[in-house]
């Protein structure tokens, strides 16, 4: 899985002798370590993936192992938005509003095929990937992803968080949408990523 546990040994030096204990480490490492292991998720569960998210949080898979058992149903106290399930157009402004209400630093996991790309819902009602509305850090494929898949996505996000540097100011820049169109990315790009692909191209004929 590529999780670098040796970094703990190289970065932390714990005093052994004497009555006073001390630790030396890099500030970046300490902050990131703390953040990565206590990500508070904001579950934006809409459809089937929300059920698998519930299963992930429940007894067998136990999300508490990742410091994520504290569901933050208020976006204002959340670190990571987990968008679990399809997002129709009617829900798009809601998702955007929730994302904008979350304070920095914040991350986003797009769980499942529908959230990531529109999935099998290539029709008039569904947003073809939430990355046209909000920025996404980790995409978890699957329809729906198994709990193990979601956990792998979470661990990838933890890896990403651990590699952040406070010196890099651009990390915390809030992306502002274009004030005229309210879109982050240019409309031709949205049309391009929303183009039907694969088998779905041929399944647009009614009848026969």
């Amino acid at each position: 899985m590529g999780l670098d546990t040796r970094r703990v040994e190289t970065n932390v030096d714990v005093g052994s002798a004497g009555s006073e204990s001390w630790v030396t480490t890099k500030l970046d490492f300490l902050v990131n370590w703390g953040r990565a292991n206590s990500l508070w998720p904001m579950p934006f569960g809409t459809a089937c993936c929300a059920i698998e998210f519930m299963a992930t949080a429940a007894s067998k898979f136990d999300l508490a192992r990742f410091g994520m058992e504290r569901m933050s149903f208020s976006p204002r106290q959340a670190d990571v938005l987990i968008c679990a399930g399809r997002v129709p157009f009617k829900l798009a402004p809601v998702l955007r509003r929730i994302w904008q209400q979350m304070p920095q630093p914040k991350w986003c996991i797009s769980m499942g095929a529908c959230a990531s790309s529109g999935g099998m819902f290539d029709n008039y009602a569904v947003v073809q990937g939430i990355d046209t509305i909000i920025p996404v850090d980790v995409y978890v494929p699957g329809c729906p992803p198994r709990p193990e898949g979601l956990m792998y996505g979470i661990m990838m996000l933890q890896e990403k968080v651990k590699k952040e540097r406070m010196a890099d100011k651009s990390l915390r820049n809030e992306m502002e949408p274009d004030p005229r169109s309210q879109l982050y990315i240019p409309p031709p790009l949205i049309d391009e990523v929303s183009e039907p692909f694969g088998n779905s191209v041929h399944q647009t004929r009614s009848g026969l």
Binding site: T46, A47, G85, R86, P88, K90, L91, V94, F121, D122, N123, Y124, A125, V126, Q203, T204, R205, S206
Partner: peptide, 15 residues
Amino acid sequence: IGYLHCGFEKIGEYR
């Protein structure tokens, strides 16, 4: 309601 309207019935006419 309607926040999860995904057009099932429409897409059924194409499958």
